[in-house]
Amino acid sequence: MAEPLLRLVDLRKHYGGLAVTDGVSLDVLPGEIHAVIGPNGAGKTTLIHEITGVVRPDAGQVVFAGRDVTRLSLPRRVRAGLARTFQITSVVPGFTALANVALAVQARLGSSFRFLRPAASEAATNTAAMDALAEVGLADRAEVPAGALSHGEKRALELAIALATKPRLLLLDEPLAGAGPEETERLIALLTRLKSAYTILLVEHDMQAVFALADRVSVLVYGRVIATGTVAEIRGNPEVRAAYLGEDEA
């Protein structure tokens, strides 16, 4: 088996008396889409926060590409190759779509402590940013303020921003949430395309999408991983059906 790209070792996080992450150990292998599913409040977003450094775990380790990153801040983890999207879309509303992505490009390409030249007319960053926008199908919306994009377009833009950091691992927190049926279809097609090029940790409630996209699935309930396996294994797991799928399909 290949070395995991991401390894979580017995992560724990309490909010007051509530164990939101209760001893989570989990591997994400290079090249796979690893889905994390679980009911509302299971601790999925918190888990992504811990992996990306938004939230410090109380105990346990986050090992990324063989390196312990548990104590690194969010920006440093991003520079190490972790990129994420947020459950609640996070873009710079006053910037154009292009400038949103160009910000990520300039962060990756080198120093942002440059004071003289206007950033908006830098060809190198703009070209790379356009590429990322094209990758998510937003090329013709480049000059639109991000705040004026539709919900689905904002989700796609956030993906483009994440891609522009040239990540080794993408963490997506419910990329389909709140998108209409058409937008959902487009986003699934996009994720399918990304699948060949990126390792992805996908948190998603849309079971159809998860079963279509994921190589492996981990089921998180009350902060614990109750099962990890292939799509077929998870679908057939009686414990999972009882804890999660059952109530979902009822």
Binding site: S73, P75, V78, S90, V91, L103, A104, S112, A162, T165
Partner: peptide
């Protein structure tokens, strides 16, 4: 947070 999430503090 967006700025942090592209790798800049």
């Amino acid at each position: 947070q967006r700025v942090e999430a592209v790798g800049l503090a």
